[in-house]
Nucleic acid binder design. Sequence first.
DNA 1: AAGTGGTCTAGACCACTAT
DNA 2: TAGTGGTCTAGACCACTTC
Lengths: 250, 250
Amino acid sequence: MTNEEASETLITRNPSLTDQVTAHLKERILGDGFEDGRIPSETDLAADLGVSRTTIRDALSRLEHEGAIVRRQGAGTFVNRPGLQIKSRLEEIWSYEEVLRDHGYLPSVDVLGHEETVADARLAADLGIDEGDAVIVVEKLFRENDTPVVLTVNQIPAGYVAGGDVDPAQPVYALLEAGGERRLAYYVSEIVPLALDGDVAFKLGVAAGTAAISFEEIGYDADNEPVVAATSYFRDDLLRLRLIRRKAAL
Amino acid sequence: MTNEEASETLITRNPSLTDQVTAHLKERILGDGFEDGRIPSETDLAADLGVSRTTIRDALSRLEHEGAIVRRQGAGTFVNRPGLQIKSRLEEIWSYEEVLRDHGYLPSVDVLGHEETVADARLAADLGIDEGDAVIVVEKLFRENDTPVVLTVNQIPAGYVAGGDVDPAQPVYALLEAGGERRLAYYVSEIVPLALDGDVAFKLGVAAGTAAISFEEIGYDADNEPVVAATSYFRDDLLRLRLIRRKAAL
DNA sequence: AAGTGGTCTAGACCACTAT
DNA sequence: TAGTGGTCTAGACCACTTC
């Protein structure tokens, strides 16, 4: 009996060496395991951890990209204190619950709306479907304690989500995976400033006309086919969006 | 006399193989050199271009990160049409003139202000200097034709920039390099929505109270020392900020 | 089963920084 | 000059998709 474990779990990955090294180094960085902010040389790390320098470099590249470290040719690799301030990198937001948790909040989700409508011309064009096709609209409010922080409106072609028994409170990517039709690969997002109108302002618990940021975005699957159109509104006084800007490509 | 050429030029780089491969592939992608959107296998590319697969993979990783291509394990690598829409990646903005050029504009720069003041408590803390230390403030307006698009205010400790003969119209990183003291390595930026006040609104040519996006950011050198504090305001109707959001780390 | 991208190795040489 | 990160090679095996 060649008993294969981990049978039913949806998660297939056994962490790659690079993943493990990344996690290990991140732990040491956050735990102040490197006294003066200097990280050992790549050669030393490779020897210590028993992997090749390539693996070490892959891990360091990730940490550099996250802003956790800075590398300087000829000099060494160093912990990057300002970079560590950044809790959620804008380009990697995938679930607002996680974002709020990263900010130290205890998030909760309220489904404000969950209905089926038909696509208008603009939405049909965005999603590559026909005008009048059925679309599921899910409106969710993310709070920390009782304070609203993020409001999202997702519009998904009805055929991509499973029947009525799914929980609309789960993240969109999970909703789509449950549907089995399409899998979310990436978003193209526009950052749009606006003065909140009465309805959205009320739901977010701020005065109408308050300046705020919204994301207008389209999510695509790996085949570059659009699968979801979304708009998100943020309470910027509670959730500051941060990012690192660098000159060079990685 | 071992005459070393390229003596006076500031640019040291002879493009790396990866750079060249990246440029080559990008050209073919934009020029529709790949008929059905399918890019040859990494092994084939390596053989065709006469470099190792590692070099090819480095180049493809960059293009993937820019959103120009999508890679799918087991299937292949493909041109990413939606990703090609993105002209300037938010995380790599380094000069607004370049950003505007990428959007197809012909930019011009106006220096609205260029003066020396003293740091208040907050600025001193941000820049790691003492309250009352001298600070150069440069306010610039970027236009396309005569239409204002971006307004920036940069605050730099006076010691980091050269004497009075420098041209404040050049990008901040160039200003600092000319000063010779500090070199800009990266920014940590906050995206802040706001209703434009009368002064800024007037300079940008919009009505006071218009909702807009601003960046509040601090630039650091490679030693993680702050070297510049900046605020930028955008005409979002003329310059949409876009980014790609992905789940996984690279 | 064949072909693709994903991971990993071991080693080489170069460019740059420190001392 | 010694040590560091940056680039590049050639090859191996694995996980996954496609046919």
